[in-house]
Simulated assay, not measured.
Amino acid sequence: MTKKKIAWITDSTVFLTEKLKANPDVFVVPLEIIFGNDAFEDGVDLDTETLYQRINSDKTVPKTSQPSSGKFAALFEKLKENYDSAIAVHISSKLSGTMSSCIAGAEMAGFPVEAVDSKSLSYAITVLIEKGIELAGDGLGVSDIATILREEADNGQNYMLLGNLDQFYKGGRMTGTQYLLGSILKIKPIIRINTNGEFELFEKVRSEKKAGARLVELFGEAHSKNHIEEVWVMHGNVPDKAKEMEAAIKSAFPRLKTFIGEISSTIAAHAGEGTLAIIWHNEPK
């Protein structure tokens, strides 16, 4: 059997398009979601619908845990049979230790892996993997592809409206002051993942409607300075709100490609049901 050149590794915070799901060279290592003594693998034995039901019925905030280095090592041992090497694109290393586990697992298995920090999550990872597969198709080597993807990771931009401040705060992603501002004063915080790959409070807006309009405005500011082909509206079980956001973007930018998708269970465990986010990739004009 001839060896396939590159395996593509990612984690369950990614948004898997139908094309990536159908690609036999793409492998997803799930993060764990923990309710008390019960641990579930994201996307394997826990979907978002069950997650929201459990949060609402238990009234507890779940914890998330990165995959172990042993889990990565076991995968890489199997991949050795058919692949020469792998490129791994993971959730921001500032938000999770998943990439560190991947690197440690590769060392344990003695398998060459180029790890790329997406400095983000969800569709931002998707874009990098798709770009990498395209570059591999053009004949570029693993090292060169990884270098380009690390540069491309800096071009992602995102803003989100959290569905549940309580979950975000208890998950350690928000300070007490920010939490109080949002919960008591009913201010809607706009959160983003900054260029370092960390969550930050970007802006405070008085209502959800104004916050939604502000997201479209922020996209417009980026669109005026960069070449942007597509914008992705991601949501936590609020497809109607996502469609409203898409319609507002389409109204302002009729030629732009748009896509609606759902956030994964790992992201939903922190951001909460009702979350709305927009993600895009800036290219120079």
Rank of each mutant, 00 (worst) to 15 (best):
P24N: 13
P24A: 12
P24I: 12
D25R: 07
D25F: 07
D25V: 12
V26Y: 05
V26D: 08
V26R: 04
F27M: 11
F27N: 10
V29W: 00
V29A: 02
V29G: 01
V29F: 00
V29I: 12
V29N: 01
V29C: 03
P30V: 05
P30S: 07
L31E: 01
L31S: 02
L31W: 00
L31I: 08
L31Q: 02
E32F: 03
E32M: 11
I33H: 00
I34R: 11
I34C: 12
F35Q: 05
F35R: 07
G36R: 08
G36L: 10
G36K: 13
N37C: 10
N37E: 09
N37S: 11
N37V: 11
D38F: 06
D38A: 13
A39I: 08
A39C: 12
A39Y: 03
F40D: 00
F40H: 02
E41S: 13
E41V: 08
E41L: 14
E41T: 10
E41C: 12
E41Y: 08
E41R: 10
D42F: 05
D42N: 06
D42H: 06
G43M: 07
G43F: 03
G43N: 10
G43W: 01
V44F: 01
V44P: 04
V44N: 03
V44D: 04
V44T: 06
D45Y: 00
D45N: 03
D45M: 01
L46D: 05
L46M: 12
D47N: 09
D47H: 05
D47I: 06
D47Q: 07
D47S: 08
D47V: 07
T48A: 08
T48F: 03
T48W: 02
T48Y: 01
T48L: 05
E49Q: 14
E49V: 13
E49G: 09
T50Y: 11
T50L: 15
L51W: 00
L51P: 00
Y52H: 11
Y52R: 10
Y52P: 11
Q53M: 13
R54Q: 07
R54M: 06
R54T: 05
I55D: 00
I55P: 01
N56M: 14
N56V: 15
N56Y: 10
D58I: 14
D58L: 15
K59I: 15
K59G: 15
T60I: 14
T60N: 12
V61R: 09
V61L: 13
V61E: 12
V61K: 08
V61W: 08
P62S: 09
K63M: 09
K63D: 04
T64L: 06
T64Y: 04
T64C: 07
T64Q: 06
S65G: 12
S65D: 09
S65L: 10
S65T: 11
Q66F: 00
Q66L: 05
Q66T: 06
P67C: 01
P67I: 00
S68T: 03
S69I: 07
S69A: 09
S69Y: 00
G70F: 06
G70L: 11
G70N: 14
G70M: 10
G70C: 13
K71Y: 01
K71L: 04
K71R: 11
K71F: 03
F72P: 04
F72C: 09
